[in-house]
Design a protein around this nucleic acid. Structure first.
Lengths: 339, 339
DNA sequence: GTCTGGCACTCATGGAATCTGAGTGCCAAT
DNA sequence: ATTGGCACTCAGATTCCATGAGTGCCAGAC
């Protein structure tokens, strides 16, 4: 084993010890708990080098070392072994998700499960509209010159939108609108719906044209221009467990977790194959600079329908969280495919 | 002014000072900041009496007094003046809620608004199903022997449920089912739906009878037996502002706030006329024993459709929060009535 | 060249001792 | 019933000190 390799072993040991004890780790403790085969003095030299290179740091002169963001990054990229799920965890996942009814229910369960498995804050995104397709589009008359459109996607999402109409419509009109919308949109992917939508005003009777134009405008806005993304979070209480890891109090973290936009940027930009880890300062949002985010896309097949992940202190069990997140995502994908 | 009256004045002053400064308040400070017209020594006598009666307490021997739950209770019941909304607040409410689209959007805005106005955690319940009526019931074929029922209520709520059918149905069947369900249920209050539902299997053709039976069973379960209640929360980050008020850390509070069931018991059992205040130990849930909850029902007219409120430390601005909660509930009621 | 034991140095942490002042309760006087 | 005076209490801040974990560096061993 070259001395370079041992340096990395030392870094790995530091990360593991620090994650589990939350105490800065010194050379002596290191040589005792891991059999690296060298004396503390040698470890000290390695540590000096690691510090020089920016992988670890000392809170103060007479303290042990603590991994830096950069250190965690190296750990995650090259040092952490993938941790297999325990049988209990595997069973927990299945029994948790098996009983799910509709999509809402399933995602609620998912977020709970993920929070429980990782003991972190869990975040789950609803299947994104743009990559879903139309299963049914319902038109309901709701009061004078108002229609409610209810979109049901193949992933089970149900989205509503109320439109103000330029003129009143009767029941027959509503039925006609529903029929036309469904014939032209059913099965279509929402990303491609635009093309189909713009032609619709022309296929209805002239009397209905203004109404259809309004509907099309509403749909285009809701589905294409600014498709509504949804996220659910859970397990916020887990943050207090690691309160000591957030020097500036939980405030900025909790604030960030309330912003849908922030959450979407965290877990929405992932593909379904690889787990993405963002460590400390790598996070786009200021308030999350003392947290790490582990996320992955889920989906039935190759394209990611949405993302899910966990948010916790940088001092987290990366290996464990990565496998948990990956496993849950796979199950969610299966559930969606099977429905 | 009788000495009894003055004692209450002293209590009021203690509560007000403690709420605004978070320091135990002593006799000297009291006589300086409020002109009670008596000397500190006299105030001390009153304080001794108040403590004797359990309205205030001393954190330790040489400290000032702090209101007890019982003290806050008396304050809320008899001493707090109703605080009028400021113009800015009034405007904030209107502009916040005016732009709301559908129900989801409106309640999201409401919770945000309430959290912002009170700087506490806000909780808003969706209009309860049992007191809403059916606007439309949609039946959608979703894969082999599965139907999705989508209920739209007069309050704008959209609820879905997927049912497994005993046998396959064709499009015509689905249309027929939809027609029958709507003719019999539209406009009906969900609380009364049971009676109408049980007759339905008899009015369809024998072939469809088993399917209709399944649907009816599903609807009864979903709407009558265990009608799904929903709540939204917001402003959790506000808890950190008053972290010092929660000696046992925020953990139990955050946990309680994640439990829908707990939240429902907090804000769901209210009528729409009077604001309900639960102080400290009065709360049903253990984890909320160091918090107070201010809640009220909202509704279009006399019956409460749901509840909303705020959760914060017992050391809160009761008067302000009560008016804010009341005002927001009134606006929400108006919005619902006007849609 | 690499590793190791030895040693002086640093400094956070925790405990003991001390000081200060806010606040109280009680009492005698008004 | 109210008030001023006074002795008493005690949390919190301040200081001082001892402890020990941990480091960096160096000279010698492998």
């Amino acid at each position: 084993m070259s001395s370079e390799d041992r340096k990395l072993d030392v870094l790995r040991a530091i990360v593991e010890d620090f994650v589990s004890t939350n105490d800065p780790v010194g050379s002596r403790a290191l040589s005792e708990r891991h059999n690296l085969g060298v004396s503390p003095a040698t470890i000290r030299n390695d540590m000096a080098a690691l510090e020089e290179e920016g992988y670890i740091a000392q809170p103060h002169t007479s303290a042990g070392r603590v991994p830096t963001d950069k250190g965690y990054r190296l750990f995650v990229d090259r040092l952490s072994a993938t941790k297999p799920l325990s049988g209990a965890e595997r069973r927990a996942i299945q029994s948790f998700l098996a009983g799910a009814g509709d999509l809402d229910d399933m995602l609620r369960r998912t977020v709970r499960l993920l929070a429980q498995l990782t003991r972190q804050v869990a975040v789950v995104q609803y299947p994104t509209l743009t990559r879903s397709s139309v299963r049914h589009l319902e038109v309901v008359d709701v009061g004078p010159r108002r229609l409610m459109l209810v979109l049901i996607t193949d992933t089970g999402r149900v989205e509503q939108r109320v439109l103000e109409l330029p003129l009143a419509v009767c029941d027959d009109d509503v039925n006609e609108l529903r029929r036309i919308l469904n014939t032209h949109l059913q099965g279509r992917r929402l990303a491609d719906a635009h093309a189909a939508l713009i032609d619709l005003p022309d296929v209805v009777t002239p009397a209905l044209r203004p109404v259809m134009t309004t509907i099309v405008a509403g749909l285009v806005e809701a589905l294409v221009d600014q498709p509504e993304e949804r996220v659910v979070t859970g397990g916020t209480a887990n943050l207090t467990r690691s309160a000591m890891d957030f020097p500036n109090s939980l405030h900025p973290v909790l604030e960030a977790l309330e912003e849908q936009v922030v959450l979407l940027r965290l877990i929405g930009e992932v593909d379904s194959s690889t787990v993405l880890v963002r460590i400390g300062g790598e996070n786009p949002h200021e308030g999350l600079h003392s947290t790490s985010v582990v996320s992955v896309g889920y989906g039935a097949g190759d394209t990611a329908l949405g993302g899910l992940g966990v948010v916790g202190p940088t001092r987290m069990d990366y290996a464990g969280n990565m496998t948990a997140v990956r496993a849950v995502a796979r199950y969610v994908g299966q559930m969606l495919a099977g429905s």
